[in-house]
Simulated scan of single mutants.
Amino acid sequence: MTSLQASIFHNRQPDADQLKAYGFTKQAGAWHYTQELVPGFELQVTIKGDTITTPVIDRESGLPYVLHLDLANSGMFVGQVRGAYVAALKGIAAKCFTPTMFAGGQMQQVLAAVADQYGDQPEYLWAKFPNNAILRRQDNRKWYALLVKVSADKVGLAGSDLVDLLVLRAEPATIQAQLAAGTALPAYHMNKQHWLSYRLDNGLKLTDLMAAVAESRKLAH
């Protein structure tokens, strides 16, 4: 996978229904899609399992065009092909793939429980911050959870390893008590007087987390 391609499809997985709706066809267990990028050059996308190939083909010669993959290559035509290539892949990633940023561990359990109990799904709102998602009520569109992967030192922990944080609304008294007890961390990104953070996969029970989610959702009235 090229670096350009890898950066676009990182932490995303294909959705069969969305691929079909977008115009992909399935043959021999693989999904195929062709799109003209610039006159005489087409993008050929093949998705089979975890493997994605995205060659650009010169229609006249039938050979792959690769100059756009090296960012050191400049020039008007190369830039035109590269821009069209990136735009096409970003469109496919947005329309045909779903994020897998929180596809494991306790975050997955929380999201599954939220979907089952409330029908709410995570929303990835920021292209520049793909590690961040929100949960919100559908009746008033207010957020009640922020889901992030951040460096441990961003929330006062030792080291720079990524940790999963579930950031929830809470009453000020609850925030003070849980911070004092060490069962929660200061809110990441949100107002620290009205939100707090829970580090996941760190010993907290799912039932306790879901009780905190229920309270946060209630506060988002």
Rank of each mutant, 00 (worst) to 15 (best):
M1K: 10
M1P: 12
Q5N: 09
A6D: 15
F9S: 09
F9V: 01
H10P: 04
N11A: 13
Q13F: 09
P14W: 12
P14E: 09
A16T: 08
Q18N: 14
Q18S: 14
K20A: 14
A21Y: 10
A21F: 04
G23A: 10
G23W: 10
F24H: 10
T25S: 11
T25P: 03
Q27L: 09
H32W: 12
H32A: 05
Q35D: 04
E36R: 05
V38L: 12
P39K: 15
G40V: 03
G40C: 05
F41Y: 15
E42F: 06
E42L: 03
Q44L: 09
T46P: 05
I47N: 11
I47E: 13
K48G: 07
K48S: 14
G49S: 01
G49C: 11
T53N: 14
I57G: 04
R59F: 02
E60G: 05
L63H: 12
Y65Q: 14
V66S: 12
L69W: 08
L71S: 13
L71N: 13
S74Y: 06
S74H: 15
F77Y: 15
V78A: 03
V78I: 13
V78G: 01
G79E: 11
G79Q: 08
G83I: 03
A84D: 12
G91Q: 14
I92E: 13
I92N: 12
A94G: 10
K95I: 02
T98S: 12
T100Y: 14
T100W: 08
T100A: 01
T100P: 02
A103F: 06
G104H: 14
Q106Y: 07
Q109N: 15
V110C: 03
A112M: 05
A112G: 04
D116F: 11
P122S: 04
P122Q: 07
E123Y: 12
Y124L: 03
L125E: 11
A127G: 11
F129N: 06
N131P: 03
N132T: 13
A133W: 00
I134P: 06
L135A: 00
L135T: 01
R137M: 03
Q138H: 13
Q138F: 07
K142G: 02
W143M: 02
Y144L: 01
Y144T: 00
Y144G: 00
L147N: 06
S151W: 09
A152R: 01
A152V: 01
V155W: 00
V155M: 02
G156H: 11
S160G: 07
D161V: 04
D161G: 06
L162S: 12
V163I: 15
L168I: 08
L168C: 04
L168F: 00
P172I: 09
A173W: 10
A173F: 07
T174C: 07
I175T: 13
Q176V: 05
A180N: 08
G182A: 07
T183N: 04
T183A: 02
A187Q: 06
H189Y: 15
M190N: 07
N191M: 02
N191G: 03
K192L: 09
K192Y: 14
H194G: 14
L196G: 06
L196S: 09
R199P: 06
L200D: 00
D201L: 03
N202A: 13
G203H: 08
L204T: 15
K205T: 08
T207N: 11
A211Y: 10
A211M: 04
A212G: 05
V213N: 06
A214G: 11
E215K: 14
S216D: 11
R217M: 04
R217C: 12
H221E: 13
H221A: 14
